[in-house]
Design a protein around this nucleic acid. Structure first.
Lengths: 337, 337
DNA sequence: CTGTTAGCGCATTCAC
DNA sequence: GTGAATGCGCTAACAG
């Protein structure tokens, strides 16, 4: 392994001169600089970023926290297309700014906190996690910039879609379509769940509609969506609309509706959340809330980079607009009484 | 930041004793060890993995090379569910073994090679890349273990599905179903494309069938699949089957078939490749080749870990069995002449 | 079993 | 402009 000392010896300069040349410092003559760079090139030198990190106390690495989910069935972590898309945009933006992406794990060190400390990560993006857990909240005590998706906390920055507003808009639409009962799925206790619920309640009281049944769900799984529709179908209701917490469970529900030969969308409406591309690919197209995964990832990266570069940058909650995608699985009910 | 020297001073031991205690070495008494660990805990010590990496010359980090794709439209990188699923399994296995996942970027250092050198990565998993590119082949010259998905090269280890065998099996099935012409999409020039083509040709000559048209494609995109079906439909053929390079383009093709009111699967059969879960979620279910993404990721991790831990471990090409998923978009043609 | 010593490769004072 | 010296935090020899 070639070091700056090897280059120094070979080129006749000192190690510090080499270091200066390599890092583009100004207090070195162009002539010496070029000479040094040329020998570095010739000798096949690659800087040791570990040694550099040790002395600069920065790693140029951003930690990603992406919960893997319990077992194979739950669509969390990388296998959930929505989170993947956010992460993909985030990754591109981060890398274009000269930083690196690394996953935070709680397997090697005792926990996430220890891992972040140990690796001297420059910043953290929490894409998907159970924010109610002590292990996650503990992270907020790190002295490093953190931005979290779908959470809100004074101690860190955060980003999410306009869950409340869009949920209110959705409810009004559904009722306007002629549905007479709404089954509304609530995810785990969380910031997002609360926001959506607030939006829903606001809309309900505004339009004076109260035929709503709340269903508590756990994870975003196809299977869970399937069984929810089975349960709803057992009520033998007509003109009902089921709002799922995400597109995967909605697609699971759609599959159940198909298997049970339910009439979608007239007897039963199905609405997703997230707007993953695949929902628009096959028929019927999924009616859903389209979150702007690209903007979410990119803006999360931009904010985190600001926080890293400027210690005075304040924490902030960023809201990204989403939009309703009214397609085939929930739309104006036609005909039939 | 607490260091081992702080702990040493506080506990009255030497720094090396602290280091030994912290790393679970044997040449230290249990009594001293416990005492040291207790004060470390009390002082809120977190090891500096950077300093450790500097001296051990290992990073415990595995680099992931996952090509982002060109622009938003192409389903590559993290947004492609199939690659995400492989990476997810890989990640779980790697982390359970005390290693970390980090993405390789060609943005900060001049190129991938420089990045790997600079970061002192312990191993590399190439999930998705253009292996024809010099920049990728250059990586094979690293003195670090590498495993690549869907490529084969003497200098590294690799893993892929049984592309040739399954493609042969697929062709025989399609002809057996009664299709009279096959449109077979070929991806970019690559190991996989060659393997599949070999399998196809073998099958064709075996069953003495030659009504096949090859279509050259570029990337796995929904749009490309769509336009392929448009082109095929222009031929106004019946009883034709189109084999796509992956499920995304197949789903795009299926959408086109729907829009053009083509009769799937009787007039036109559509076959994907990969077996992403979403293909089985909506109707019609996609007929496809199901690659075992879980096994691919896990076995890639296992092999890479072996290569890292044992320098004598030989490079190897691992083949993971896949299977045909005969569903709705291509199956036995019934009725009609 | 324990402590002393010497670096890992680099960036950064501070003299010159 | 340049080079010698110092130390980031840690592990690994070695000597006791």
């Amino acid at each position: 392994m070639i070091t700056i000392y090897d280059i120094a010896k070979e080129s006749g300069f000192s190690a510090s001169a080499v270091s200066k040349a390599l890092n583009g410092y100004h207090d070195i003559s162009d002539k010496s600089k070029n000479e040094i760079l040329k020998t570095a090139q010739r000798m096949g030198y690659y800087p040791n970023s570990i040694a550099r990190n040790l002395i600069t106390k920065r790693s140029s690495s951003i930690g990603i926290l992406l919960y893997d989910g319990i077992g194979e069935k739950n669509k969390l972590g990388l296998t959930h297309n929505f989170f993947s898309e956010i992460l993909n945009s985030f990754k591109i933006e981060i890398e274009n700014n000269g930083y690196f992406i690394t996953f935070i794990s709680d397997k090697s060190d005792e926990n996430y906190f220890a891992h972040c400390k140990s690796k001297r990560l420059d910043g953290i993006f929490i894409v998907c996690a159970d924010f109610e857990k002590k292990e996650i909240q503990e992270l907020f005590g790190l002295d490093k910039p953190i931005i979290a998706f779908d959470n809100r906390n004074e101690r860190i920055s955060s980003i999410s879609s306009d869950n409340g507003e869009i949920s209110a808009e959705l409810i009004k639409q559904i009722v306007g379509f002629g549905y007479e009962r709404i089954y509304y799925c609530l995810g785990r206790e969380s910031y997002v769940t609360k926001e959506r619920l607030n939006g829903v309640r606001g809309a309900l009281s505004q339009i004076n509609f109260n035929k709503i049944t709340y269903i508590n769900t756990t994870f975003c799984s196809i299977d869970e969506g399937y069984s929810i529709i089975e349960r709803v179908a057992a009520d033998n209701v007509k003109r009902s609309c089921v709002c799922f917490t995400d597109d995967y469970s909605a697609l699971g529900g759609l599959k159940a509706a198909h298997d049970l030969r339910l009439n979608v969308p007239d007897d039963i409406g199905i609405v997703g959340f997230d707007g993953i591309k695949i929902g628009q690919l096959l028929y019927p197209n999924l009616t859903t809330v389209q979150q702007d995964s690209h903007a979410l990832g990119r803006q999360a990266a931009e904010k985190l980079l600001k926080l890293i570069k400027n210690p005075k940058e304040p924490n902030e909650h960023i809201v990204v607009p989403s939009k309703l995608l009214i397609k085939d699985t929930c739309r104006k009910i036609i005909g039939r009484t």
